[in-house]
């Protein structure tokens, strides 16, 4: 998924903040993982600007589906 995420991160720069959290090494992954009840990797959590959860995607996802989820963010 990394190439897709990297590509979308560039495309959506200034519109959506991308937070990449390595579940193995990133301490923030543990705290945010607990906050959002993450138990499986990969998982994408998409949040609107007010912090409300717009969509949670568990597992592999196509670039188009991820793009659609990003476009739906407010």
């Amino acid at each position: 998924m990394a190439p897709v995420v990297d590509r979308l991160k560039t495309e959506y720069e200034g519109k959506v903040e991308f937070r990449l959290l390595n579940a193995d090494t990133d301490p923030e992954a543990a705290s945010l993982g607990a906050q959002f009840d993450i138990q499986y990797v990969p998982t994408f959590v998409l949040l609107d600007s007010d912090g409300s959860v717009s969509e949670v995607i568990i597992g592999e996802v196509s670039e188009q589906d991820l793009r659609d989820a990003l476009d739906a963010l407010r």
Binding site: V16, E17, F18, R19, L20, L21, A23, E28, L47, L70
Partner: peptide, 27 residues
């Protein structure tokens, strides 16, 4: 028993933009 402490500073800090959290692993 949660790892996450509500009072800690480790919670999600919003920047005013929508956010995508990508929990991944190198494995």
């Amino acid at each position: 028993d949660s790892d996450w402490d509500e009072d800690s500073e480790d919670g999600l800090i919003l920047s005013g933009m929508p956010v995508l959290l990508d929990f991944y692993t190198d494995w």
